[in-house]
Design a protein around this nucleic acid. Sequence first.
DNA 1: TTCAATCTTGACAAAAAAGTAATGATTTGA
DNA 2: TCAAATCATTACTTTTTTGTCAAGATTGAA
Lengths: 157, 157
Amino acid sequence: MKISAQEEYGLRCLVQLATLGEDEALTLPQIAEREGISTSNAGKLMWTLNNAGFVKSTRGAKGGYSLDRPAEEIYLNEVISVLDKDEIKGHCDSYTGVQDSCVHTGDCGIRSVIMGLHEIVENALSNITLAQLVGTEKKVDERFHRIQGLQSTLELN
Amino acid sequence: MKISAQEEYGLRCLVQLATLGEDEALTLPQIAEREGISTSNAGKLMWTLNNAGFVKSTRGAKGGYSLDRPAEEIYLNEVISVLDKDEIKGHCDSYTGVQDSCVHTGDCGIRSVIMGLHEIVENALSNITLAQLVGTEKKVDERFHRIQGLQSTLELN
DNA sequence: TTCAATCTTGACAAAAAAGTAATGATTTGA
DNA sequence: TCAAATCATTACTTTTTTGTCAAGATTGAA
């Protein structure tokens, strides 16, 4: 269970844009330099983010990328789902091994685990906006630990 | 953010073993068939699980694999961490892009998100044992949704 | 003892993900 | 208009992850 390169760098690029003032924009070389990735790679990432409607691009001199909606309105779960093209819905169809259909029919606890994990992650991410990632690490940390705290005190049996 | 093939199949193999009675064991071909994967692949998976101490193996006729400790005492977070060899600790070292060191120094909200996600997943998994995956899907589902429910009512700002 | 069943291990092959490159399209400003 | 700056798109290469194979080691039983 880990975050992919796509997800991480994509998020990072958006955070860069979120730090900009009104009417400011960043070009691909600028984004690439700030994130320490190649311009090509940044281009690909931004293309994805552009298609998904998170950013808008302007070509030509003085062009570049900027957010297409306020950072306060961009929730991380949306971003991640675009960057990950994650198709959790059909999970049991895609992980059937060499068989024609899922050999784990009916009462399969694992399915629940996988689905449950996705829900938990989704839920956590849907409580955080891009805007909240700008600035101090401490704030984000706190947010996560409030969720953590509650979970830890759960008595499951 | 998704579960890897290693993680999923490894877990599944363990669940198979958890359904066995005392003194029963499954051979590689048996495990492979039940999971719909190749015997080779099952062999590799079981090798990992054996090294990690989750299962014990017996060679020769009448051999096979069985759990090395009670399913009630095997928590999913342990299993996943072995199957994923996930090194979250050094995250910012390994995702530095083309630079020598992490370009996202100091106050980087993304680091918190990544760490936070891992903690949340870890926490959820540490509340579930192998034994609880055997049998009905419904039970596991419930477990996850109790966590979910609490999270949803959180007021974050 | 010897053979067949079974796990062990490391090398190899295939597939997926990540990253790069190259060519084309649009825009601005001289 | 035209050239420079900048994004868009697709193809290609590299790396990582998955999966397969084959030769070896151990064990139990006839």
